[in-house]
C-alpha cells in the first residue's frame, strides 16, 4: 500500500467532513486549517479511519498531524505494525 493509495482513500473518508469547503483535497490540505475541522470532527474522522483499516490510532498520537498527508503517513505506520 503506497502513500498515494492511503492519501486517495483518506480523501474519500475526509470528504463528508469537509462539507465542500475545499474543492480539491490533496495530501497537503490542512485538516484543521483549510478543511476547518474542529477537534470533534477530527476525532470522528479518526474513528472512521480506524474502522476502515482495522487499526487503533490513539488520540495521543495525533498532536503532529496537520495535513491529510501527515495522517496518511501515520496510518501507514499503524497498518505496518498491525500487519
Amino acid at each position: 500500500m503506497t502513500h498515494q493509495d492511503v492519501v486517495a482513500q483518506l480523501i474519500k473518508l475526509v470528504e463528508p467532513y469537509a462539507e465542500g469547503r475545499v474543492a480539491h483535497i490533496t495530501a497537503n490540505t490542512g485538516l484543521t486549517g483549510e478543511l476547518a475541522l474542529d477537534s470533534l470532527k477530527v476525532m470522528d474522522l479518526i474513528t472512521d479511519v480506524e474502522d476502515h483499516y482495522e487499526i487503533s490510532v490513539p488520540l495521543n498520537t495525533l498532536a503532529d498531524i496537520k495535513t491529510v498527508g501527515d495522517l496518511a503517513s501515520l496510518i501507514q505506520k499503524h497498518v505496518g505494525n498491525d500487519a
Binding site: 479518526i46 474513528t47 490510532v57 490513539p58 495521543n60
Partner: peptide, 13 residues
C-alpha cells in the same frame, strides 16, 4: 485525564 495520563487513548462510538 487521558491527556494527563499519557496513555494511548482510543475513542469508541
Amino acid at each position: 485525564g487521558c491527556n494527563l495520563s499519557g496513555a494511548n487513548t482510543i475513542r469508541f462510538r
